[in-house]
């Protein structure tokens, strides 16, 4: 049977989930160092418990460990985001567009920093990592409805911030 103690299975789980764990903690606290440590902590713990945790449970296991690591411990810093490098055939290189996009991005980043931690995390996991509401609900240990609520409120406050209301 598949076993997390199997090096290949473990590596595969790591490749599938480590980036999201990293982003998850980063969106929460805006601290890159802590996010890297959280990945290490979560996956080292997964290894230590590999006999007990099935591959199906591994995902929620690493999120839970990462999440509990900094519970009420660190103060959130500003989350800094970058532009994803333009891929392939998109050629929207005209300076006006780029400038406008940059300005908008700055506004968005500023507005994101003002969001409550749980709304920001939910919003970014969905937008950047493409996580479904149900997946985020599982990570956060709340209902899908609660995630929809966070998403709705996040969009609403971001819009109000950016439009200067």
């Amino acid at each position: 049977m598949d076993n997390v103690c199997d090096d290949q299975i473990y590596s595969q789980l790591f490749r599938t989930h480590s980036k999201t764990v990293f982003n998850y903690i980063y969106y929460k606290f805006g601290n890159e160092e802590k996010a890297r440590d959280a990945v290490q902590e979560a996956f080292v713990k997964l290894w230590e418990n590999c006999a007990r945790v099935t591959p199906e449970k591994a995902k929620s296991f690493v999120y839970t460990v990462a999440n509990n690591l900094y519970l009420n411990v660190i103060k959130a810093e500003k989350v800094r985001l970058k532009h994803r490098p333009e891929t392939g055939n998109t050629t929207r290189q005209d300076p006006e567009f780029l400038l406008e996009e940059r300005e908008f991005k700055d506004k968005l980043e500023h507005a994101l920093a003002g969001l409550p931690e749980n709304q920001r995390t939910t919003f970014l996991l969905n937008r950047i990592d493409g996580k479904k509401y149900s997946e985020i609900a599982e990570m956060e240990g709340v209902s899908v409805k609660a995630i929809e609520k966070r998403m709705h409120l996040a969009l609403k406050s971001l819009r109000e911030q950016i439009d200067g209301i």
């Binding site: 490749r15 982003n23 890297r36 996956f43 989350v79 532009h83 991005k105 970014l124 937008r127 950047i128």
Partner: peptide, 21 residues
């Protein structure tokens, strides 16, 4: 909705992190 999908977090080298783990 559009711009947010074109953002990304800090670089994360999965293979290097895996080695470390």
């Amino acid at each position: 909705a559009e711009v947010s999908t074109r953002l990304q977090g800090p670089e994360f080298d999965v293979e290097q992190a895996l080695e470390q783990a």
